[in-house]
């Protein structure tokens, strides 16, 4: 599914150096599980986000492997340490090969 996918990320604009911040991410995606059937009884093929990663200045924060049991519009919340000012990069990997990303900058202060 390459249409209508919109990543949303909530990150504080600034943080004290070395402090922990909470990050919330959501991406609009139907996450078709491959278990459902259409009106004619045919199985609807699986189409999900199968991996999500978050990095800060190139260093890994979290790497999540997802399966069809993740709900529609996958939501993740986790904590990250901010050692210096920089950019968070969020990446979602779709079954169909599409890659969606988002970037958020954090200032120190």
């Amino acid at each position: 599914m390459a249409s209508g996918v919109k990543p949303r990320v909530k990150v504080p604009k600034s943080a004290a150096a070395g402090s922990a911040i909470t990050i919330k991410t959501l991406i609009s995606h139907k996450m078709e599980s491959g278990q459902r059937k259409d009106k004619e009884g045919n199985v609807i093929p699986r189409s999900i986000i199968n991996r999500f990663t978050c990095t800060f200045n190139g260093k890994s924060v979290i790497d999540i492997k997802t399966e069809p049991a993740i709900s529609t519009n996958p939501y993740f919340q986790f904590d990250a340490t901010v050692p210096e000012a920089g950019d968070f990069v969020f990446t979602w990997y779709d079954d169909d090969g599409s890659v969606y990303d988002a970037k958020k900058s954090v200032a120190i202060g």
């Binding site: 990095t55 979290i62 999540i64 986790f78 050692p83």
Partner: peptide
């Protein structure tokens, strides 16, 4: 789901 925590996970 599998969460793999990196070095900057608080």
């Amino acid at each position: 789901v599998t969460f793999n925590f990196g070095e900057l996970a608080a």
